[in-house]
Design a protein around this nucleic acid. Structure first.
Length: 470
DNA sequence: AGCGGAAACC
DNA sequence: GGTTTCCGCT
């Protein structure tokens, strides 16, 4: 075949934005010391294809967040074969490789949809932000079931966005790997952050209406100066992802970025991730070229649709919902589980992560050979707690969970609860708290209050009103 | 179409 | 370890 082993399709992975401080789990990144590690992994390849405009007809984001459809399996296989110098590659083999990811929870199959798979971005995101004390981030606290149930989990894009920095202008195209940096460093291949659209400032394809996005009502509605409202029906229909102007979806003054704070306080490698002058007030939206994609070839802003957020606590979807419906509610918000896993433990596959192989579901206790035990951060999956696997979020399943003091499973479906002792105080002094109100809190609430605190105060207000009325 | 086991390959 | 290849099964 025409395998010259030098695909112009995908650039060889070369370190870029990366600093030693950022670490991907093994499945995301193999150090140079590992033989063959220089070879692109299939999921990297898939992501790259997804990111490239020219392959929209071959593979494209579609449906739920992180979900993509291989429109031309043979072509994808062919491209993969070229990339890997496997002229006999075909979709059958490629799909086998994709299935290999199921256990690793990098991917899972969207059942009922042909050639449709779904990324579990959460892990990727999680491991990219180890420097964030997300465990104490209200956002991530809200992602979990142990938030006292008082605050609506904020899985809003704003909340997510607020946790991630915008990337400095790279202007080097959309390769998954940035090869333009100097010589390959010891860190080896590093995935570009802007591989994951929600990490950059490009407006993601949200699929959920604002009413589902956050604890606070949006009032008035946000204005989309570029004339596109991602919440409008059909806004992100198949292959219809609009090209959006660079810049954050929302004004930063509304969504102070805790990561910015974190990064700006760090020495160079991290602080450099922040675009200049982006420390505070909202300059976003019009500056252009700050989303890490402008300047080069047009980036595909057709991003994996935002999962929508408030699946958390959804425990009833397993019954009655059709398969398709269940798939639809499957989501792997990038946030998943951060609050529990970060820097503390491997949650072991984050069984809640969203996906399981059918055999796992059938067998119930299949031990994931790969597991995520090698991950430092695990996807507990989220606000959506996603998926069909909630019921499998059992203690027994992941033996690794047993005895881990950070986690307590209540033994019920989909509930993953930390021990009380691990819960933050009702009003956390954590600095991130002050950054979190996604929507400006009511005037009666000091902006420094965390959402949970705000709710607490609301409750007290209500109590007070009751007393007054009585 | 999709799955996963098994073994081979690199 | 991450596939690739093959295969039987659903």
């Amino acid at each position: 075949m025409d395998c010259n082993c030098v695909s112009d399709l995908l650039l060889p992975p070369v370190p870029a934005l990366w600093t030693p401080g950022f670490a991907f789990p093994d499945w995301a990144y193999k150090p140079e010391s590992s033989p063959g590690s220089r070879q692109i992994q299939l999921w990297h390849f898939i992501l790259e294809l997804l990111q490239k405009e020219e392959y929209q007809g071959v593979i494209a984001w579609q449906g739920d967040y992180g979900e993509f459809v291989i429109k031309d399996p043979d072509e994808v296989a062919r491209l993969w074969g070229i990339r890997k110098c496997k002229p006999h590659m075909n979709y059958d083999k490629l799909s086998r490789a994709l299935r290999y990811y199921y256990n690793k929870r990098i991917l899972h199959k969207t059942k009922g949809k042909r050639f449709t798979y779904k990324f579990n971005f959460s892990k990727v995101v999680l491991v990219n932000y180890p420097i964030l004390d997300m465990a104490n981030s209200p956002f991530f606290l809200a992602q979990n079931h142990f938030n006292g149930g008082s605050a609506t989990p904020d899985c809003s894009p704003e909340a997510i966005q607020s946790l991630f920095p915008r990337l400095p202008e790279t202007g080097r195209g959309t390769s998954l790997f940035d090869r333009s940096s100097a010589a390959p460093g010891p860190e080896g291949d590093k995935l570009r952050l802007d591989t994951f659209p929600f990490l950059s400032s490009g407006a993601p394809c949200y699929t959920k209406p604002p009413s589902l996005l956050g604890p606070y009502p949006r009032n008035p509605p946000f204005d989309y100066p570029w004339g596109f409202n991602p919440y409008l029906p059909g806004a992100f229909s198949l292959n219809n992802c609009p090209k959006l102007p660079p810049g954050s979806l929302y004004p930063s003054q509304f969504y102070p970025n805790p990561l910015q704070s974190s990064l700006s306080q760090l020495p160079h490698p991290f602080s450099s991730l922040l675009p200049p002058g982006d420390a505070g007030a909202g300059e976003r939206g019009q500056t252009g070229g700050t989303n890490g994609t402008a300047g080069g070839q047009p980036a595909r802003l057709c991003l994996p649709p935002y999962p929508g957020g408030l699946m958390m606590g959804r425990t009833d979807l397993g019954n009655g919902a059709t398969l398709g419906e269940r798939e639809r509610v499957e989501a792997n918000p990038p946030s998943s589980g951060l609050s529990l896993g970060l820097g503390a433990v491997s949650l072991g596959a984050g069984t809640g992560a969203g996906q399981q192989s059918p055999s796992e579901r059938r067998g119930g206790v299949k031990q994931d050979p790969e597991s995520d035990s090698d991950l430092e951060i695990t996807d507990l999956s989220d606000c959506s707690s996603d998926n069909e696997n909630e019921h499998d979020f059992g203690i027994a399943k992941e033996s690794g969970l047993v005895g881990r003091p950070q986690l307590v499973l209540d033994g019920k479906k989909g509930s993953l609860l930390p021990p009380i002792s691990s819960l933050p105080p009702p009003v956390s002094p954590h600095p991130l708290k002050s950054l979190m109100p996604i929507t400006p809190p009511p005037p009666s609430l000091p902006p420094s209050l965390s959402p949970s605190m705000a709710l607490h105060d609301r409750h007290r207000e209500a109590e007070t009103l009751k007393m007054i009325h009585s």
